[in-house]
């Protein structure tokens, strides 16, 4: 089953429960130099917007349909699995950071060994009938990971995928 990740920007409050759940799932310890796979933040309104509206975001790997990181990797570490998740085997990673330059969201991170690591969409959990850790705990229901057949941006007040596709690239 092909899965789609998305964030409802109108529901997100950047509380970070997703980021912490991801750290718990993936044993990420920022105090030991690990970079998190998921980050949250409050984006201040643009001065010209004038409405004072803050945007709250949770950013991680979007598992893009046409993932630029896959093309950028010189050693072929990155690939799509049958769930359409962008996965990787970093055995051959040379730490060249090409994937970082390819990703508009800063999703690739690098471990102390210099090798790339990132969100794997909790592929193994999905295969076992469990939903990704970040989605599972998201207290506002902003994050979602649903089968492609049932996915539609209409279900969102403001889909991150939609704003990114229309405005960010």
């Amino acid at each position: 089953m092909r899965m789609v990740f998305d964030l409802d920007v109108e529901k997100c409050v950047a509380c970070g429960a997703c980021a912490v759940s991801c750290m718990d799932q993936n044993d990420i310890w920022p105090d030991r130099g690990d970079a998190p796979y998921r980050r949250v933040g409050v984006v201040e309104p643009l001065p010209k917007a004038g409405d004072g509206r803050l945007t709250y975001l949770s950013l991680g790997c979007m598992h893009c349909a046409d993932a630029p990181c896959i093309k950028a990797c010189p050693v072929g570490c990155l690939f799509k699995d049958e769930q359409n998740l962008t996965l990787y085997d970093n055995t051959r990673c040379i730490g060249c950071h090409s994937c970082a330059m390819a990703c508009p969201f800063g999703a690739p991170t690098y471990g102390p060994d210099g090798k790339m690591r990132k969100c794997d969409g909790c592929a193994e959990r999905l295969k076992n009938g469990l939903i990704p850790a970040c989605v599972r705990n998201c207290p506002t229901g902003a994050l979602s990971c649903v089968p492609e057949e049932t996915y539609g941006t209409a279900a969102f007040d403001r889909s991150l995928r939609a704003i990114v596709e229309h405005a960010e690239r």
């Binding site: 920007v9 980050r39 933040g41 984006v43 643009l46 945007t55 975001l57 950013l59 508009p104 969201f105 800063g106 991150l160 704003i163 990114v164 405005a167 960010e168 690239r169």
Partner: peptide, 21 residues
């Protein structure tokens, strides 16, 4: 690329957050 392909517009919130991070 965004500013190249859509002149006169600013970057979106996700890009701003990623740059800040």
């Amino acid at each position: 690329i965004k500013r190249l392909t859509a002149p006169g517009t600013e970057i979106g919130p996700a890009a701003r957050l990623a740059l800040r991070e």
